[in-house]
Amino acid sequence: MKEIINCAAYQSGCRIADVELNKVHEVLKDVNQFVWIGLHEPSEEVLQRVQKEFNLHDLAIEDAHLAHQRPKIELYGDTVFIVLRTAHKNQQQHIEFGETHFFVGKNFIVSVRHGSTIAYTEVRSRCESMPELLSKGQGFVLYAIMDFIVDRYFPVVDDLESDLEAIEDKIFKERPSRQTTEQIYQLKRELLEVKRAVSPLVDICNRLMRFDIKSISAETHPYFRDIYDHVIRINEMVDNTRELLNTALEANFSLISISQNDTSKKFAGWAAIIAVPTMVAGFWGMNFRVIPETESEYGFYAIILGTIAVCVLLYVLFRRSGWL
């Protein structure tokens, strides 16, 4: 597997050369150039070479190697270390999360991808096609990749909203079931994962917009405001979906309870109806010498008809009351 996806030098918004990793320090001597390096699940050896070239902090390198970090932004001297989580739907329609770590310095940016993430080849191509914007330096590159990551949350959240609508249709149009409850909990779990990934981005964007970070020019601050707006929208969509999902869960429980009550009523109604002939049979089945109506010619038929009449009457009353 290729660990170093790209390592190139840029000047005035144009790609001027591909650079070998161990020669990056020579490019960094020119303050008018910056280096953009893309790594995919690099080994510890590659990260140590990157650390040596850019003089990166040990703790940041350790985080970039181990991965499984929460989204965050940290400053190590003049270098900014940022962790973002990526998300997309796989072929089985399950959400897969990955991580991208960034090291942003005075004239360099290093992106480190981990897990299920989509390559940023498209982002690099788009940036290289806009030299007037790429000339803003590594700050614009950071914006472009962050914007790409955040925008990919929209289809994920849209799919979750569609799943919620399907669950609502199941709840109100079909018979409530345990399977529906399991689907609700599965969707709640996915929404919680998305919330954990997106929520910290608000603070990250705020710091990138408002703090004086030497490695990110003030010209790029408005671009991060655009990402901030997108993050707020995604957070609102997730919160609204979670609230509706909680309501759907309560509605499902209520309908299940109503269904159980209806079933209990039916059992009670039929039990009451069956109790009538059982009681009659119990009375006339006792071993006494003298039992009323036993010597009557029509006594048996009268008891049978009376029993049937009472059962029919009970059935009609229960039917009217909604118990049957």
Rank of each mutant, 00 (worst) to 15 (best):
I95L: 08
V110Q: 02
A309C: 13
L160G: 04
V141M: 14
N235C: 09
M1F: 03
L160R: 12
R320K: 14
S135E: 15
R70F: 04
E132H: 13
I73H: 06
I95E: 02
Y120T: 03
N6T: 06
A218R: 15
E128N: 11
A268F: 15
G282C: 10
N107F: 08
S111Y: 01
F300E: 11
I149E: 00
S111H: 09
P200C: 11
N235F: 01
T181H: 04
L160Q: 14
K72I: 10
N22P: 03
R175C: 08
R152E: 03
L324H: 08
F300L: 11
L208C: 06
I118F: 02
L47V: 06
V312P: 03
L187M: 13
A275M: 14
C7E: 03
H101M: 06
P277E: 09
E41W: 01
S257F: 09
T100S: 01
E45N: 11
A119Y: 08
F267K: 04
V83K: 00
F81N: 03
F300Q: 05
D147Y: 08
D147H: 10
V104R: 09
E26C: 05
A8G: 08
Y10S: 06
I16Q: 07
E45T: 15
L313F: 15
D78E: 15
L28H: 05
E295L: 11
Y315W: 15
G77D: 12
V312L: 15
D169F: 11
V316C: 05
T294P: 02
D18A: 10
G38V: 07
